[in-house]
Structure formats: structure tokens, C-alpha cells
Amino acid sequence: MKSEHFADFLDAAARGAGPHWAEVHPQNYMMAGGPMHRWLTAVREAVPVSFHSVGLSLGDPGGVDLEELDRLAKLVDRYQPALVSDHLSWSSIDGEAFPDLLPLPMTKASLDHFARQVDVVQERLGRQMLIENPSRMIAFSGDEYAEENFLAELVRRTGCGLIIDVNNVIVQQINLGIDPVAYLDSIDPAAVGEIHVAGHALEDHDGELLAIDDHGSPVSDECWSLLEHFLDRIGPRPVLVERDNAIPAFAELAAEAARADAICQRSLAHAA
């Protein structure tokens, strides 16, 4: 949900013609009041809302920023979102924040640390959180887990759920050579609380393609196809179309959201 689309979204919601829910970055609302809260209040009154945090930095070696967590908890209490989530990543160290969601090594030590931070967050919020699979450009040489196994163990230890970003899986297919169908087929359906789809950019580096998860283009045909495959296996879930760059008119995004909804409806019929 982008601020430039608030008015169009609310108009569509009033006519029963828009997306059925909205996701926001809670860090954009960590102030006492003002126009952003008036808009979010109106959106929350119209449809369910999901909070997708980008600031907890769960993989930070020093642990979660407790002040940031407290701000998030107050927003959760205020708006009662249907879902709360963050990323399998880190984005700060020694109090210095970075504008990126940086990858973790897939090791026992990082799993132990990350699970402890998820426990801290879930205890403070008094609810389950979802963790999103990353879009990685690199893998660490000392990795001890495949990513899907790392996520499965995190779910088992903490009781958290997952956001599966299908585009992130495609990005790793290009960058790391993973099999996207095998990855999706390994995910426990019971763990999945939300799904993301998006577009990405490709850069050519001396004949080697590098995928950049920029959310700056329409959802690709491959992403739609993998979404349909995934939902046929696990059943319908809330599906979010992400667009953070080169943001188009609301009607274009609403059409993509309608396509996602149609795939969900087909998966429901398939399950029946």
C-alpha cells in the first residue's frame, strides 16, 4: 500500500471493487499522529491490514532493537493487524542501520541467534509473526543448511510462520541456481501465512545474469506460474503484489491483485 494510492484504494473499497486487504510497512507510521495515521485508520476500517516490518533486523549480532520493537508493539496494539512479519535478514549493526535487507549465513550459530530474536519479538507482541524468505545474490561458503531447511527448523523451534515470496525464489534460481519448484514443494503448507509476488531486474555482468529484487516491474509470467503451482499444493493464502519502484497507476496494480485473487479461487476449486 503506497501513499499515492490511498484515495484510489479507499474509493475502490467503498465500491466493493478493490483488493480485499492491504499490507503496509509499519516503520512509515511510527509517529504519534498526523496524515499518515488518518489514512491508515481509514484503510484499516475498510479492509484487514498486514504489517510487514523492515526494521527489526532480527539477524543483528546485538539482537533486536528493543526501542524499535516497542514502537512496533504499540502500532500493533493500535491497529490490530491480521498479520505481522519481518525478514530473514539483518540491516543494522552497532546501532547503525542500513537501507538493505542483508543475507544471513545459513549456519547453526545464526539459526540459534535468529530463533532467539524471533522468540523475543513474539513474546513482546503476544502473537505469532511471519518470516519472509530472502532474495539472495550470494551464498556463504560455510553454509550448513539449505535455506528451506533453515526456515523449517526456525518454524519448528519458534512456532513462527512464513511469508513465501515467490519472486525471491526466482531471484535465487538465477543467482544461485536453485530449483524453484523443488524449493516451493519443500515448504510445509501449515507454516505459510502469506505469499508475495513481484517483478525483478536483470543485470548482465560479462555474460553472467544477476537478478536484483527491485520490485520495479510487473509480476513475471514465471512468477504467476509458480504461484499457481504453489497454491494448488498448499491451498489459498493471502497474496500480495509488491511494487516499490516505478510505481504505476492504481488500476494496474489492482489488475495484478485481481489476477492473484483469480489464481487463489482456482486453487480453492482445485482443492475441492
Results as ranks from 00 to 15, higher is better:
M31L: 14
E45L: 11
A198K: 00
D221G: 08
E96K: 14
M1A: 09
D77M: 12
A251H: 12
G16E: 00
E23S: 10
V118M: 03
L184D: 07
E67K: 12
S225F: 06
D206E: 15
L184C: 02
L75M: 06
A12D: 11
E242P: 05
I234P: 02
D185C: 08
S50G: 11
S217L: 10
G95A: 03
R124Q: 12
R116F: 06
A198N: 03
G95T: 01
P248C: 05
D232A: 11
R157C: 09
D70A: 15
F9N: 00
A42P: 03
C160T: 09
N149Y: 08
R266Q: 10
C223G: 03
L231R: 00
L101M: 10
H5G: 03
V76G: 04
K74N: 13
N133Q: 08
Q173M: 08
I170R: 14
N245H: 14
G18L: 01
S91I: 00
S92Y: 04
D206V: 13
L111A: 02
W90S: 03
D100M: 12
G126R: 02
R78T: 10
R15I: 01
L125S: 04
N175T: 09
G95S: 03
L151E: 04
Q27T: 12
A109I: 08
R44F: 07
V64Y: 04
A146P: 07
P48T: 08
R15L: 10
M31S: 14
S91M: 10
E194F: 11
M31P: 00
S110M: 14
A17Q: 12
E194L: 13
A73Y: 05
H229F: 10
H200T: 05
I263F: 00
A109R: 14
V239C: 00
D213R: 04
F6C: 14
R71T: 10
V120Q: 09
Y79Q: 04
E68Q: 15
L10Y: 05
G216L: 03
I178P: 03
N245G: 12
S3H: 14
D188V: 04
H5F: 01
N133E: 08
L176W: 01
F140I: 06
A115L: 03
R237K: 14
M31Q: 15
K108L: 15
A97R: 15
D65E: 08
V43P: 00
A258R: 03
D112G: 04
S135Y: 03
I178A: 02
V49L: 09
S225Q: 14
H87K: 09
R15E: 05
A82T: 09
G199Q: 01
L253Q: 11
D60V: 11
P26F: 00
D214R: 10
D206C: 13
R116I: 02
Q265A: 14
Q117K: 07
H5Y: 00
I187A: 01
Q128H: 07
S85C: 08
S267H: 07
L104A: 01
R266E: 04
L10G: 05
E96C: 15
S57T: 12
S85T: 01
S220F: 02
V192R: 06
K2F: 07
G142D: 15
F230V: 02
R156N: 13
E252Q: 12
V120W: 06
S3P: 13
G95V: 06
S91T: 02
S267I: 02
A260G: 06
V241F: 02
E208S: 13
D143C: 04
V54E: 10
H52P: 11
A246K: 12
A201M: 10
R78S: 12
D8I: 03
F98L: 15
S225V: 08
A190W: 07
A182H: 11
